[in-house]
Simulated scan of single mutants.
Amino acid sequence: MCNEKFHVENDPPGEQLTVNHCAVAGTIATGNGHSQLQEFSASLNLPIMTTKTYKACHVKLQMHWEKVSVESMNQAAAKERELALSENRVDKNGIPIIDVVVDGCWSKRTYKKNYSALSGAAAIIGRKTGEVLFLGVKNKYCAICAQAENRKQEPKTHECYKNYSGPSTAMDQKFSSKVLGVPLTCIT
């Protein structure tokens, strides 16, 4: 109507995210996956993203989010360290003492019975800043490994996320003691 022509580029140069990456990020943020993105694209009469493209975008986003998360956690830890030093809260070796809040959770949890979650998560938050110092996930299950085991075969080469064995109820303790590497003093 305005007789103007606009050029829209869906793959800009540099580190910017493409339209495909943004679509995958939005899909993940809403708790959906590739099949839901396909349905949504079809309803808008947009070309449907292939599984291969979706996975490639997902991997790139995962690496980017992990990098940003680590940078953010390192900055938060530096703030907590500086606050402890400014208050002269150090041990006999000059190591800053910081207060943290640690909590963990696991899925498929019921009360008084059936603590059989296959994965759990934990976070360590600096008490002074309220910022995340550590975030971790423990998994007792890998679909690729389980399928190979059922077929009595060696699993194909894959990125295995199984990093925990033991009772689900111990996931909290494993995070706090193993990750920090120091004994925690709990105040209740």
Rank of each mutant, 00 (worst) to 15 (best):
72 S>D: 13
136 G>R: 03
53 T>I: 00
97 I>M: 11
175 F>I: 06
76 A>Q: 10
28 I>Y: 08
24 V>S: 03
146 A>M: 05
15 E>D: 05
86 S>N: 11
144 I>Q: 09
121 A>T: 05
156 K>S: 10
161 Y>S: 11
184 L>A: 08
167 P>T: 06
83 L>S: 01
39 E>T: 03
121 A>V: 07
105 C>P: 00
81 R>N: 14
162 K>V: 03
141 Y>L: 15
60 K>M: 11
168 S>L: 03
122 A>K: 02
156 K>C: 05
100 V>E: 01
49 M>E: 00
13 P>V: 09
100 V>S: 03
145 C>I: 08
35 S>N: 13
57 C>E: 06
57 C>W: 09
188 T>P: 06
103 D>I: 04
134 F>P: 00
27 T>I: 01
107 S>F: 07
29 A>E: 15
24 V>A: 07
142 C>S: 09
182 V>E: 04
96 P>Y: 11
55 K>P: 00
118 L>R: 07
34 H>G: 01
12 P>I: 07
151 R>L: 14
105 C>Y: 04
122 A>H: 07
145 C>N: 07
150 N>M: 10
8 V>W: 11
109 R>L: 12
117 A>V: 00
122 A>G: 14
132 V>D: 06
148 A>R: 02
120 G>K: 03
108 K>F: 02
109 R>Q: 10
83 L>Y: 09
86 S>C: 04
140 K>T: 07
12 P>W: 00
179 V>H: 08
66 E>D: 09
127 R>K: 11
115 Y>K: 04
125 I>W: 15
42 A>I: 12
155 P>G: 04
63 M>P: 00
60 K>E: 15
157 T>R: 12
146 A>I: 01
162 K>G: 12
2 C>S: 12
10 N>W: 14
63 M>R: 13
118 L>N: 10
103 D>C: 08
151 R>D: 12
11 D>Q: 11
50 T>V: 03
138 K>I: 02
167 P>F: 05
156 K>A: 09
125 I>F: 14
144 I>A: 12
109 R>T: 03
41 S>V: 01
113 K>Q: 15
3 N>S: 15
156 K>T: 14
156 K>M: 04
13 P>Y: 10
47 P>V: 06
30 T>G: 08
72 S>W: 12
170 A>C: 06
170 A>E: 13
186 C>A: 13
126 G>L: 06
61 L>N: 07
117 A>S: 13
143 A>K: 12
